[in-house]
């Protein structure tokens, strides 16, 4: 009779006391808005407020970052949510992309 080994359970990696879920291991993406000379600054601020629900101060901070540095990382999200935001931003004709965060 063959020797049967007890099944081995490999513990999942943990973060502190919390077990990591599949969502934690899924790739994440930066949603980036790129500068262009055609979108008005007030319009870009308005779009950030509408799409992300940000207050004016936060929206203007990111708009100025786009304007002065050429781009701004708006959010870091899982693939599905990042795609959603890019679709929304491009619906407003902003130059937005999603780039792998790792």
């Amino acid at each position: 009779m063959p020797h049967v080994l007890e099944p081995i359970t490999i513990p999942r990696p943990t973060t502190g006391n919390k077990t990591r879920s599949d969502d934690d291991l899924a790739p994440t993406f930066f949603v980036i808005c790129w500068n262009d000379p055609v979108n008005l600054m007030v319009y870009v601020t308005h779009v950030f407020m509408k799409v992300f629900g940000w207050n004016r101060q936060k929206a203007e901070k990111h708009m100025l970052e786009v304007h002065e540095k050429g781009k701004s990382v708006l959010v870091r999200e899982g693939a599905e949510k990042a795609e959603f935001y890019v679709h929304q931003l491009q619906g407003y004709k902003l130059q937005a992309t999603m780039e792998p965060a790792e």
Binding site: F29, H87, G91
Partner: peptide
């Protein structure tokens, strides 16, 4: 364009979906 850096292997499929979404929009 869905990406500018070209490091996402799923970018072509995501871009196809983006084009469909924008056309509908």
């Amino acid at each position: 364009k869905i990406s500018r850096m070209g490091t996402d292997p799923k970018a072509p499929e995501r871009e196809r979906l983006l084009h469909e979404s924008l056309a509908q929009h």
